[in-house]
Amino acid sequence: MPQANTKLQKLIILSLMVALDVVLSPLFRIEGMAPMSSVMNIIGVTLMGPFYGTIMALTCGLLRMLLLGVPPLALTGAVFGAFLAGIGYKYSKNIYVAMLGEIIGTGLIGSLLSYPVMVWFTGSATNMYWFIYTPRFFGGAISGSLIGYLGFMKLEKITKFKRIQTLFKGEELDGYESKRPINE
């Protein structure tokens, strides 16, 4: 039964991160930029890893599209950044690599893929070119990554944050900590 409990805990934490992202992203939005999405991507991938971080970004993008009427830019802007940030952090354990992954994934890859998606979505390529979204996506990704870095530095000092990280890595905490449930 411990495995079912672990899966449930992971889903609960993922749900909380999705809820935070969906609520905070429109509150701290600059037209054409979503820096809070990058903040949540950085914190999400450092907490949950690349798989759950990417699932979080995908789910948040879909929810923002369905509930808030945001165009498909919500997906192209967040998913690639979360994936590259997660892979970068998983293999380097370095927040700077995660930030670089977020900036390249969102600022470059996401912005370039947004052009064909928006041409398809709007049905017109008039007044659009490949780099139309790049400045705003880079601006949002850079500012969001910096804020995410500051948030991560504060969260890293919290024992509960470290315990949740070990839950997503599938590791046991050493000594007394491993005997305590995560919800204590």
Rank of each mutant, 00 (worst) to 15 (best):
Q3M: 12
A4F: 14
N5F: 13
N5M: 14
T6N: 13
L8A: 15
I13M: 12
L14I: 10
S15D: 05
M17Q: 09
V23L: 15
V23I: 15
L24Q: 12
F28L: 15
E31M: 14
G32R: 07
M33P: 01
A34T: 08
P35F: 02
M36P: 01
S37C: 04
S38T: 05
S38D: 05
N41Q: 10
G44R: 07
V45P: 04
T46R: 09
T46E: 08
G49Q: 02
G49F: 06
F51C: 01
M56G: 00
M56V: 00
A57T: 00
A57E: 00
T59E: 00
L63S: 01
R64G: 05
M65H: 07
L66Q: 10
L67T: 11
P71N: 02
P72F: 06
V79E: 01
G81I: 03
A82N: 04
L84P: 09
A85C: 07
Y89G: 07
K90R: 14
K90A: 12
I95Y: 09
I95P: 07
Y96P: 05
M99K: 07
L100G: 07
E102L: 02
I103F: 05
G107T: 01
S114P: 10
P116C: 07
V117K: 02
M118S: 04
V119F: 10
V119P: 08
T122C: 14
A125P: 10
N127C: 10
W130M: 15
W130L: 15
I132G: 06
P135G: 05
F137M: 11
F138N: 03
G139W: 03
A141T: 04
S143M: 13
S143H: 04
G144L: 10
S145M: 11
S145W: 10
I147F: 13
Y149M: 10
Y149D: 01
M153E: 11
K154T: 09
L155N: 03
E156M: 10
E156Y: 12
K157A: 04
K157S: 03
I158L: 08
T159K: 10
K160V: 11
R163Q: 12
L167E: 09
K169H: 08
K169W: 06
Y176D: 08
E177D: 14
K179L: 14
N183L: 15
